[in-house]
C-alpha cells in the first residue's frame, strides 16, 4: 500500500516569546503514514500537536527537524498541495459572500473552467445540503452550516486527500451527524481522509485506522480494534493512554 501522507521523525519546536522559558516542543519525532483510500482518525487531547502536524503538512509551519510528504512530494514544495483539500479549524469564511460565490472564488484559484465550476458547485452544495442557502450571505449561516461550507470548499478541486482539522468541533449532535455522513460518502468515493478529533464516538464509527497523540508524542497507532484492545472501548483506551486515572478524580 502506498503512503499518501507521511511524516518522518517530524519535530516542531515553537520558539518561546519569553526567553526564560524553554522552547515549546509541539511535535517530538512523529512518524505517521496514511494510506490511499483510508479514513484516518488523528486523536489527542487539546494541545497534543494535531493542528501543528497539519500546519506542517500544509506548509504553514516549517519542521524543526524531520520531514513530511504528501503523495511522496516534500511538503516544502507547493506542488505537493495540488491534490489536497483542507478544512482548517474555526474558520469564519468571508461573511459578505454567499456560499456559491465563495465556492466560485476558490474554483477560480484552482483554475477550474466555468463548466467544471458550475458542475462542482452544484454537486457540493447537494453533498453538504446547502442548496437552499446557496444564495444567502454566509454571515446569516448557523455554525453547522458554516462548517459545511468549509467542507464544501475543501472539496472544490475534487481532491484525493482531505485534511480536516476537527471538522465536528462545536457542532450540535445533528450537525456532527451530517459531517460524519459526508466523510462516509467521501470514503465511498475512494478518497483518503485524514482528520483530527477528540470526539471518540464518531471516530470509532467511521475510521479505518487511528493514531493517538499526546504532548507531541505518538502513543498508539492502528485499527480501532487494535488500539482499543484490552479496554472496553476506544474512549477507555484513549483515557488510559493519555494517563487519566479515574480514581484520582475523587
Amino acid at each position: 500500500m502506498t503512503a499518501i501522507l507521511q511524516t518522518q521523525k517530524l519535530r516542531v519546536e515553537y520558539r518561546s516569546r519569553d526567553f526564560r522559558q524553554g522552547n515549546k516542543i509541539a511535535l517530538n519525532g512523529l512518524d505517521l503514514e496514511v494510506h490511499a483510500g483510508e479514513v484516518f482518525g488523528f486523536l489527542g487531547p487539546n494541545g497534543a500537536g494535531k493542528t501543528t502536524t497539519m500546519n506542517v503538512l500544509l506548509g504553514f509551519v516549517p519542521p524543526s527537524s524531520g520531514g513530511a510528504s504528501l503523495f511522496g512530494i516534500d511538503v516544502r514544495q507547493p506542488i505537493a498541495r495540488q491534490r489536497i483539500g483542507y478544512l482548517p479549524e474555526l474558520t469564519y469564511y468571508y461573511k459578505f459572500l454567499t456560499a456559491e460565490e465563495l465556492l466560485r472564488f476558490y474554483a477560480k484559484i484552482f483554475g477550474l473552467t466555468r463548466a467544471e465550476t458550475d458542475k462542482r458547485i452544484a454537486e457540493l452544495l447537494k453533498l453538504v445540503e446547502l442548496e437552499h442557502a446557496a444564495k444567502r450571505p454566509i454571515k446569516s449561516y448557523s455554525k453547522g452550516m458554516q462548517q459545511r461550507v468549509g467542507l464544501a470548499q475543501s472539496l472544490i478541486n475534487n481532491p484525493d486527500l482531505l485534511i480536516l482539522d476537527e471538522p465536528t468541533s462545536g457542532l450540535d449532535p445533528l450537525g456532527r451527524m451530517k459531517v460524519r455522513e459526508i466523510i462516509q460518502r467521501l470514503k465511498e468515493q475512494g478518497k483518503t481522509v485524514f482528520f483530527s478529533s477528540h470526539e471518540l464516538g464518531e471516530v470509532e464509527a467511521i475510521c479505518d485506522r487511528v493514531a493517538i497523540l499526546d504532548q507531541g508524542d505518538l502513543k498508539a497507532i492502528g485499527t480501532v480494534a487494535e488500539v482499543s484492545a484490552g479496554s472496553a472501548n476506544l474512549e477507555q483506551a484513549f483515557l488510559k493512554i493519555v494517563g487519566y486515572q479515574p480514581s484520582s478524580a475523587s
Binding site: 500544509l58 504553514f60 474558520t91 468571508y94 476558490y106 484552482f110
Partner: peptide
C-alpha cells in the same frame, strides 16, 4: 483573524 488565509494558502496560490 477569520483564518481564511489558511484554506486560501492551502490552495495553489502563492
Amino acid at each position: 483573524e477569520a483564518r481564511t488565509i489558511f484554506p486560501l494558502l492551502a490552495k495553489p496560490v502563492s
